[in-house]
Every structure is written in C-alpha cells, then in structure tokens.
Computed example of a mutant assay.
Amino acid sequence: MVPDFGSARSLVGLDAHPAVPLWQANTVPWIKTTDVLEPEERQLWRRYERGLRVVQVGDATRPLSGDKALEWLNEDKLEALLEHLVDEYGTQFRTAITTSQVEDRLEELMEEAGVHRPELMHFGEEKSRNDFEHERVGLVNGYMDPGDDYVLDLLAELDLEAEVETAVDDAGEEYRARGRGFEGEDAETAQEILASVRENHIAQAAGRYARDPTDPDVTATVFVRTDAMPPGFADVQVPGVECVFTDLQEEIVEELRSSKRSKTVREISEAVGCSKEHVRQTLDRLVDTEFGEPSVHVSEGAGTHGATLYSDSGLPSVGYVDLQESPTNPYGDSSRWALAICDPDERGNVDQGMSSRSSDTSTEVWDWRSPPDTCD
C-alpha cells in the first residue's frame, strides 16, 4: 500500500532508480525530481567507498522472463562463462541472481561447471536481502521484463497513451515486434518506464554484494550479463564469450586436455574419428592469439618423422571467454573535502575541521548551535 504523499513538501528516495513517471504514479502527479548524486559521483562512491565493482559482460540485453525464458538462456555461452568464472575464481564464485523462470536451470549449470552448493536469488526477492553481503564474486544473469500490460496500465493511470510496436509475418499475422518498442504520442514515456523497471532490478541485484562500506575488507566484483542497467552503473565492459566450440571441436579439445603427453594431428584424428584437416584447422585456431594467450603448445618437428606435436597449455573445455578487465581509472580529483562540525572554544575560535588535499587554506566550520545573523 502506497502512503498518501499529498501533504508532503519533499520526499527522499533511497537506493532507487525509477523513472519520473513511476514517481508521479506512486506519489503525486506534480512531483519534480532531483538527483542527489550524478551518475559519476554515484559510481565513485560505489567503487571507492563501498568496494563494489560492476563488470558488464557483453552488450546484449538478454531478457529471461516469460514463456520463452529457457529458450533465450543460450546455455552454450552460459556454460562457457560459468566454466571461466570457476577457473578464474575457484570457490569464491558460488552465487548468482537471475529470473525465477531460469533460476533452477542456472543452478544446475553452475553445479555442472564445478560450483559446490551454489546459492541463487531471483529478481523480485532481492530487495533488502543481505545473503550475499560477504561474497567476493557474483553473477547477475539477464534481466526481468515487466511485460507490456504493466507499462500500458501505468500509462493509462497517468492519462497517457501508447501502443506496442508490431510487425507482420509472411502469413500476414501481426506479432509483437522485437526490440520492445512502443508507438504513439507517449511512446518515449513508455520506453522510459520499461527501462526504469528492468534497470532498477539490475541495480538492486548487483547491490546485494559489498554491503558494508565501513569495512574496507568487504569488497566484491559482480559480473552483469546484460546491458539493461542505469547509465554509468558499469565500471568496465568486457566482451564475454568469444567462441563456443562445436561438438566435434569439444571432442578434439578434450582429447588433448585429457592426454598426459603431446600428440600429433594423426593421433588426435584417429582417436576422435574425424579428418586430419579438421583437427589441424581447430588446433591452428587455438594456437592463434585471437582470443588472448595461446592455449595450445606447439613443438614443430619434435615428433616421429618430424611431425608437429601439440599439448594442452590451458585449454577451456567448451569455449573462449574474454573477461580481461581494463584497469579501472583511478580517481584523480584532489579536491575531495571532509567536513567536521565542532564546538567553538571559549575564546570563540573554532577547530578548522574542513580541509582539502590540494590546499592548506583555513576554512570556517559552521557553528551549528547558532542561527545565522542574516538570511538571504
């Protein structure tokens, strides 16, 4: 039940990213909003004071709600990502947040990737929960779409109007166009509402980590696999899954990974049951530095009759993932101020409690016990 704000002069929304139409619908239609912090300021506080780093994985939106959620999960790429997180972070990676429609399947995939007793939440239950407050690594997978009815009903409540964007298939049947667009006079407002809802859930989900800004040892890195997040929310963006092996490539890779010695192309092709050319092309691609450091070691002419030998030097089992983060830019502004409110001493002097890292100039401290002599 939303309280009556009709008599309120001002409101403070804590830890919230809703669009203005949502504020208007839940408070009063004439409300005006002002951000307490700009996106960059909020990012700096989150990164340097709270210790939470947000890594955007890829540039896809990835809706994972509705009847087709499991179809859109894209398990092949997700398996590659989970395997990489396990290899990179070991037992530190054990938690994830996603939609309720795919939560159980994501838990199964995490277990298959080697996560011991994974713990998950789903969107809609993440607010005010601190289950993951001390976790060092987390994953937010996809986003929850509120649906067209939610947006259109809210528009009607605000006496606005828009329609969903549609398209026509080859049979002349009309369907909801891809891209989640709207049409009509208030289409931009509809899009703003949609973005606000999904972005707020993402911000809340990532915010389940690093919950104690007073403790410098409580830090976390959260990998967010969607671009549906507030502006400036991600500290860095990484490509994510670059390549997923085909079934045959997986067999070739596993043959090399499981071997205790170097092997020739002929030996691998005979073990897998494919042509030597296919093995050679696969290995050449793995040797290539297109996806970072080579994961196959090559010894040319070291085998019988001068054959080339191949051995594993860090092969992934299902695909290549690039989560190499570019260094986070340091905060270079030297004019951060610290304010201290102090009692004046008996002589009427005050302790100069406000100082700047870039200046030694004394500054008065506000005498909070006495009102100002004048009021402008």
Rank of each mutant, 00 (worst) to 15 (best):
E163C: 05
D186C: 08
T91H: 11
F93H: 01
L339S: 08
V20G: 01
F233V: 04
N26I: 13
G90D: 12
A307R: 14
L154F: 06
V272N: 00
D186L: 09
E38R: 10
D186T: 05
D212N: 11
Q191P: 06
P344S: 09
T246C: 11
K127A: 13
L152S: 04
R9Y: 12
N200A: 12
T361K: 13
A206H: 02
V321L: 01
R261T: 14
E183Y: 06
D186M: 06
A210S: 15
H84M: 08
A195C: 05
A228F: 03
R50S: 05
A220C: 11
P294S: 04
E173D: 15
A195P: 01
L81H: 00
D247P: 07
P344Y: 10
P118D: 03
A205F: 04
E185T: 13
G13T: 07
S356Y: 13
E107M: 07
G273Y: 07
K32T: 14
V241G: 00
A271S: 12
Q24L: 08
W366L: 15
G273R: 06
H278E: 12
E157I: 07
S326F: 09
E242I: 01
G207H: 03
P230V: 01
A19I: 05
D159W: 06
V238R: 00
E111F: 01
V218Y: 02
I202A: 04
V86W: 00
D159L: 09
L109F: 00
R369Q: 15
P213C: 12
D343T: 11
P231I: 03
D104P: 02
G240F: 04
L152Q: 05
D343G: 09
V151C: 04
G319H: 02
P316K: 04
N74I: 06
G90Q: 06
S356K: 11
R42H: 09
E251I: 04
V151R: 02
R129Y: 08
V164W: 02
L160I: 03
K276P: 03
Q101N: 09
D360V: 06
G179M: 08
S370C: 10
T34N: 10
D288I: 03
R178G: 15
V197N: 05
M110E: 01
A113C: 03
W30A: 10
E163I: 05
M110Y: 00
A307W: 04
M121A: 10
V20T: 12
P294I: 03
T361F: 14
V102W: 02
F291T: 07
K127Q: 15
S275L: 07
R208A: 01
N141L: 12
I252H: 00
E157T: 07
G147D: 05
R347K: 14
M144L: 15
R50H: 07
A113G: 02
D131T: 14
E111Q: 05
E192K: 08
E126M: 11
D170I: 08
C243L: 12
S7M: 13
R198F: 12
K68Q: 13
W368H: 09
D170P: 07
L139G: 00
W30T: 11
S311F: 07
L22P: 08
P372H: 07
S259C: 08
V222P: 01
D351Q: 11
A210T: 06
D312F: 02
Y320A: 05
T226S: 10
I31C: 10
W368G: 10
V350E: 14
P327L: 07
Y143I: 13
L309C: 09
V168A: 07
